[in-house]
Design a protein around this nucleic acid. Structure first.
Lengths: 342, 342
DNA sequence: GTGAAAGCGCTAACAA
DNA sequence: TTGTTAGCGCTTTCAC
């Protein structure tokens, strides 16, 4: 079933059918009506590939994420999709599952589909795939890569705002030794978060003990391992900031398992504010990064770049802010940990 | 940059370029090498729309889900995507967000993209969109709709297996009054689950008290509301089965808030076994529905249907099984609830 | 207001 | 082994 069939059924030329389908007003209402009736009758849906081919441009954006299993991303996707929907744009999702090797493949697929731009939220960024994008004049928008260029913009998370609030909050609760459990090593985004933590600590006149800077993996398991590590320390911190909420949940799990009460004996601050963080016990004090604002920034960047694919990219920034719930409380004496155990 | 440019750069015809790109072996190795060098040099990615148009077939499947925010679906997507990847097939995701009105729009987009089939995991199924699919000869595979037809298959969840185990498990723990918190009203999938619960109860010679059959919404909030309801009963159940894990988590939250200990004072069984269910406290006893098996069934159904788009669809079934963790324990006297409160 | 026809980038006969 | 060429289904001038 194609446009030719419709034309025959309606007794008009294919040009007219095309006009009607695309809402041109250069068609006599009666004719248009006749065509429309046939289209509805047979539930005709024009071949988008053919239109795109003819028009030379698509109206979709690619979205590459590292791990769809981290609730942050589905929440982001929902916002992203709904914003695009209002603009009648499509979205192509792909997951790298943290395998750098999949990136090239994924980008290839998106290029083949003629996307107008790629939103890259995965951090395993290598030169090769980016080069491919640039050579094909497809704009790229990265998350927290902090590098821009021709046809490549960046949306960075403004950590200081939230981090500073978090540290100040902890300090007011008399915490002095504050640990940090970061994300996967080697990812630029992990560095940014850690650096922001360190800066915020210094700004609050708190000493940064290097031995309290641990590594995680942005997942629950990373938080568990790191927290277990912390519990073995002779001089453990009284509070910990985690690189994301999943990590924080991991710490909560081992704390609970060890019979250490949160926030009585230990305080935890997460990052992201996934929906889940208000649903676990105790509800997580965390630094909120609005998925909607982030999605909006990405769409803005993508749209701007799509207009001028070869122009210099821009920097976008999304603020963060502290959400105080119940995983933080007054600091106990440093030996609280051992005393708290059953 | 198109195939013509590559042909010029490599000093061959476009046919040869096409052959090389598609891995034909009817090209002299030296020639192929020359072409390949140019392709890599300029990072050429052929226009997939053009190929698809020419070949008349795409190699992608549409995936429609209700709510990407329910962890069950991302976990499903991950399996689905990885299975498709091994077959070099693409996936188009769309979300209805439980709005029936979005369905038509979403299906239209997929049809325009020439998908070879649609996996429909959303339950807001109306006749209109399905009609559209059929008229366009695009196979449909539904989840638990229990209806098949020409070009339309169904993957149903085999509830009895898991439900029976769960009820038997509860019965062995001396639970007699067992409640059920279902999914959204009006969805066929909700009915199936509830019916299976009732059947399993009867098979175990347990009485089904209609007043213990509550309604939820497949989300945490639904579990909370229903549990609050239950706590107000004069003769509450000692255990509850939830239509999914999110619902179960909701019940856990209000139980915890009310100072009622799980599993000491009350038992909860979830459904799905999302990753989260092993990460909360207490880890959830739940009926596991393997995302991987489900995804595999969908892919099988889709592939079979894609081969013969007009053949009669088939029924596929995926088993479930009980995973015992810590949210279930021996039943207490029925007044335990009130006594348990602080 | 409507139709004829060119051509988007590619694949696959068919020719050479 | 390689090249020429006819479309795939659509949009869009350009004529009428």
């Amino acid at each position: 079933m194609d446009i030719v069939d419709i034309a025959k059924l309606a007794g008009v030329s294919i040009a007219t059918v095309s006009r009607v389908i695309n809402g041109s007003n250069e068609v006599r209402p009666a004719t248009a009506e006749r065509v429309r009736r046939v289209v509805n009758e047979v539930k005709f849906v024009p071949n988008g590939n053919a239109s795109l081919l003819k028009q030379g441009k698509s109206s979709s954006y690619g979205l590459i994420i590292p791990d769809i299993t981290n609730p942050f991303f589905p929440e982001f996707i929902r916002s992203f999709e709904s914003i695009l929907e209002t603009k009648n744009k499509d979205m192509l999702i792909a997951t790298t599952d943290l395998h750098a090797s999949r990136m090239q493949n994924v980008i290839h697929r998106m290029l083949a589909r003629q996307v107008n731009g790629v939103a890259l939220l995965a951090s395993e960024i290598e030169t090769e795939p980016i080069e491919t994008l640039i050579r094909n004049k497809v704009p790229l928008v990265t998350l927290d890569r902090r590098i821009i260029g021709r046809g490549s913009s960046d949306v960075s998370v403004h950590y200081p705002s939230g981090m500073l609030q978090a540290i100040a909050h902890l300090k007011k609760l008399r915490h002095r030794r504050i640990g940090y459990i970061g994300g996967s090593a080697g990812l630029s985004i992990s560095d940014h978060r850690e650096q922001s933590f360190i800066k915020a600590m210094k700004k609050c006149d708190l000493r940064v003990d290097e031995s309290l800077l641990l590594i995680g993996n942005y997942r629950v398991s990373g938080g568990e391992v790191a927290m277990a590590e912390i519990l073995k320390m002779r001089n453990p911190p009284t509070a910990v900031m985690a690189a994301n909420d999943l990590t924080a949940i991991g710490t909560l799990r081992v704390l609970h398992r060890e019979g250490i009460s949160v926030p009585r004996d230990f305080s935890i601050v997460g990052f992201d504010d996934i929906e889940l963080s208000d649903m676990i016990f105790p509800p997580l004090t965390t630094i909120r990064l609005s998925r909607h604002e982030l999605a909006q920034a990405f769409v803005d960047a993508l749209e701007a770049a799509a207009k001028e694919p070869h122009a210099q990219g821009r920097r976008y920034s999304v603020r963060t802010s502290l959400v105080v719930r119940s995983s933080t409380g007054p600091a106990r004496a440093s030996m609280a940990l051992s005393r708290g155990r059953k």
